[in-house]
Structures are given as structure tokens and as C-alpha cells.
Amino acid sequence: MSTRQDSRLNLSAGLGSVTVAFVLVLLKLWALGETHALSVAASLADSALDLMVSLGGLAAIIYAARPPDEDHAFGHSSAEDLAALGQSLFILVSAGVIFWASAQRLLAETAAPLAAEGRGILVMSISIVLTIALVLWQRRVARRTGSKVVQADSLHYLGDLLPNIGAILALWASAQFGFARLDSVVALGAAVMLAVGALGIGRNAWHALMDRAADPKIVAGIEKIAGNWPGVHGFHDMQTRTAGSKVFVNLHIELDGDQTLTEAHDIGAALKRAIIDAYPGTDVIIHKDPVR
């Protein structure tokens, strides 16, 4: 798949994320006013955060798609990692606020009453359907493009599903049995899930910003291709790093020093194409050394 196609897919996922988040914020604002449920408030805060970080992620996707220039010879893909790191920080703050509010309500002497549970259940059900549709599309895009921003967004929205289901259970328990404290328990669980997901997203983005090597499976795959390539007598000094959705590879191959420059070039070019075909989005630089 071409870089332009990858950019279009990432852009579609970013626009979808912003649209869904905006719709969910409006729906949950109305549901909160009707139910006064903290689990709905937690879900609303999460959706509002989704909207903010999705807008930031969309901006990062647009910026990362820009071609290399004089000041950024290797492109702008690290913008995806910066956006993903920012997402993780915002998610952690949101999780802390939700956890504190939930604990305060859970420890209160009397449970806060809920209302209009049926309307709240309807809104949360719609939220689940929209979220599932978005996550399915984001995962499809992420598998094709490797975008960390889309992956982070997908993980976050996937994490929203259980809290939404929990909110439905809390509203149902309040309507049927008057058990309002389940609302706070669900919100506590949602906060913990958000924090765990945020730490994972932040760790991966940090590693990429620090030029961590590519996934060992990718490294092993490239080594296998190079080691078995016709005309290549060996390779050494292989280096990899990740930036956003791109993997950068530097590789020295050992060739017969008596062959022509054209023959050596053809071997290196064919090997480069094979690596890119196996790992789309890879940026490969191959140095040619004579066999010693």
C-alpha cells in the first residue's frame, strides 16, 4: 500500500474518531442531565477527553503525512508519537479525576439517587454501537498503516466499551433494586482501566521518541530476508528505529567486489524492495561493502 493510501486511511480514522466523540458528548450530556449518574458522568468526561485528544490526533495525522523537507529529511512521522504521548497524559489525568469523584461518592453515608435510568440506558446503548463501529474501522486501518495515533485511539475506545456496559448495569440496578452505589463502583473500574491503557500507550510512544529498535519480529524477518538473498554473502551493522508508523532500517550487505557497479546496485535495490514488500511503510537504506 502506498504512503498516500496510508495517509488517507489514517485521515478517515481520525475524522471518524472526532465525529463519534462529538456525537457521544452531546448524547451523554443529555443523559447526565436526565439521570444524575456518576457512571454516566465518568463516561461523559471520557468522551469529552476523547474529543479533545482525537482533534489533537487528527492534527498529528495531517502533520505526519507531510512529505520530507529540508528541515525534516526523514519526514514528520514522530508527530504521531508526540500526539500519542499527549493522549496518555490526558487519559491519566481524566482517570485520576474520575477515580477521586467515584471514591468520594462511594464512601458517602448515603448513596446519591439516580433518575430517568431508562433514558440513560438508551444513550449508553447507542454509545456502545457507535464505539464498536469506530473501533472495528480503526483496527482495520491500524493493521494496514501501523499508525500509533490510530492504535492509541482504538485502544482507548475499546476500553470505553466495558465502562459503558457497566453504566448500563448500574442504571438497571438503580431502576430495578434501588442499588445506586453500583454506579460508583463501575466508575472506579472505568478509571483503573483508563489508567492502565494510558500507561501502555505512553510507554510505546516514549520508546519510539527515544529511537528504540523495531519489534524483534520485524528485525528477525529482515535478517532472514537479507541472509537468504541471492548475491548477498553476508550482512552486518544492521540498525533499526521507529518513528510514528514508520520503521527505519540501515543495513550493510557484503557483495562480490569483482562484479560491476550495476550488478551490485541491482542486488541492493531488489533486496530493498523485498524488505519494503514484507514490511510496508519501512524506510530502508542499504550500504554495499565488498566481501573481505
Rank of each mutant, 00 (worst) to 15 (best):
R143K: 15
I286P: 12
H76E: 05
V40G: 13
L89W: 11
A191D: 03
H156M: 07
E263K: 10
M52G: 15
G227V: 03
I285E: 02
F235H: 07
S125A: 15
H156R: 10
S7Q: 13
L171H: 11
A103N: 00
L29P: 12
I132F: 07
A41L: 15
T282R: 00
V129W: 05
I285F: 10
F22M: 14
L171R: 10
A83Q: 06
V123F: 07
I121H: 06
S88T: 07
G56R: 04
M238F: 03
T131S: 14
D289I: 02
V23Y: 00
R66H: 11
V53E: 14
S77P: 05
A111T: 03
V291G: 12
N204R: 14
W172A: 14
S127C: 15
R66Y: 06
D69R: 03
M1I: 12
L24Q: 10
S127Y: 08
A13V: 00
G75S: 04
I218M: 15
A112F: 08
L55Q: 07
L130C: 13
F248R: 02
A31C: 10
L89S: 08
S47N: 10
H233W: 08
S2L: 08
G200D: 09
D215W: 01
H265L: 04
A13E: 01
D283L: 11
T3N: 13
F177I: 11
L122S: 05
M124W: 07
V192Y: 05
L122G: 09
S102E: 00
L271E: 04
V249G: 03
L158F: 13
F179M: 14
R105N: 09
L24Y: 07
G14S: 02
A198T: 04
G257W: 02
R140G: 14
G33Q: 14
H236N: 01
I275W: 00
R66F: 00
A220S: 15
G159Q: 05
M193Y: 03
N250S: 14
T131V: 14
N10V: 11
V123W: 04
H156G: 11
D81Q: 00
K272R: 14
A173K: 09
R143L: 06
S17L: 06
H287T: 00
L15Y: 03
A115L: 08
R4Q: 14
V247S: 06
L255C: 01
A274W: 01
L136Q: 12
R105A: 15
D283S: 12
A270M: 09
G75C: 09
V291K: 15
